[in-house]
């Protein structure tokens, strides 16, 4: 089975969306963009209560993926 996925194209599409979103946030009143953002973030927050990993499993995944940064 072949997976046809252009990683670079996907990255560029995501960056284009981020730029468009930033321009929209600049243009609309704070009440508008923040209401939309709150709907998204509050849904994540609510759903996080069903997080499947235990404390120790979660901390293991954090150690695996976290690079040691200059500022961090």
């Amino acid at each position: 089975m072949e997976l046809r996925f252009d990683r670079e194209k996907n990255r560029q599409e995501r960056l284009a969306f981020v730029r468009r979103h930033a321009l929209r946030v600049r243009e609309v009143p704070n009440e508008v963009w923040s209401r939309e953002q709150a709907d998204l973030i509050d849904a994540f927050f609510e759903n996080a209560q069903n997080f499947a990993l235990s404390r120790s499993e979660y901390l293991r995944t954090c150690r695996r993926r976290r690079p040691e940064a200059v500022h961090g």
Binding site: N30, E31, R35, Q37, A38, I41, D42, E46
Partner: peptide, 13 residues
């Protein structure tokens, strides 16, 4: 000041 920003559950946390 970010006047009018809706406070999220994450902000409260």
């Amino acid at each position: 000041h970010i006047d009018g920003k809706v406070v999220t559950a994450l902000d409260r946390f």
